[in-house]
Amino acid sequence: MSLSNLIDDWSRYRKGREEGGFHDYEHMWGMSIDLNKCIGCNACSVACYAENNLAVVGKEKFEKGQGMHWLRVERYWDEPDLGEERTSEFQQHGASFLPMMCQQCNAATCEPVCPVAATYHTPDGLNAQVYNRCIGSRYCSNNCPFRLRYFNFWSYYEDSWPAPLQMQLNPDISVRDMGVMEKCTFCVQRIRTVKDTARMEDRKVRDGEVQTACSQTCPTGAIEFGDMLGMYDPETGVAETRVTKMWRKHQVELGKTKQNKQTPEMRGYRVFEFLNTDPCVMYLDRVREV
């Protein structure tokens, strides 16, 4: 709200124009999820409920489609007759699992449509949702091709945590009330804490220091989380982050709508890449015997 602010913004805009984009990201948090390792145990989802104060809506409302699972493990079934016999009533290979959390798109479709700028892009590369600012027009959810935004259709805080369960709520994050959109934040409260600690200790955030609840909980280690900007630094000798390594190994790059794969080992893909929302979550395809 001041002239200096205006000039700062303008110079940032100019800089962005010259360098071809909005560049001063401090971090770019990203994920790599190996579907080969996913066993569909839903532990990540449970951890997410615990960490992020997600409302437990109950069976009736869940069936109506009013659940609040920020991280959902989707199950996809093959056609029953896909196997050798082609007669079996049952699946040959069981379900395929796809854990879906907010993809933190860099060109997020939810951001431009919010009338009050309640969802915006942080310098951390996160797609943030400001609960206080949200007026509940729900356009963001409508415009999310992944359908990863959840709306507080009811006021849950009284029913979801009957006493003394309210004691287990995470104090680092608010409990959302009715009429507000919410979604996976990549555990922004954990990122915040780690960043603050690092700043106090006057150092950079180390790789693996931030762990989201889901990646921490995953028993098979399918979910990797880290800073995508953490490339190898020849001066300090800091190595690439694990996520960056994964992305490079599987030749998935940000800002591309089609990945050019050279060998079948490169299993990386991003969901709905052709929509050019540029998600920060890479999935590694499941390999099965057919």
Binding site: L6, W10, R12, G21, F22, P112, A117, T119, Y120, H121
Partner: peptide, 18 residues
Amino acid sequence: ASAQSNFLIQPQGGKPVV
């Protein structure tokens, strides 16, 4: 234009301010 360039936090990830 002045309102847009006056946002304390720029909500446009990578897109023009104005």
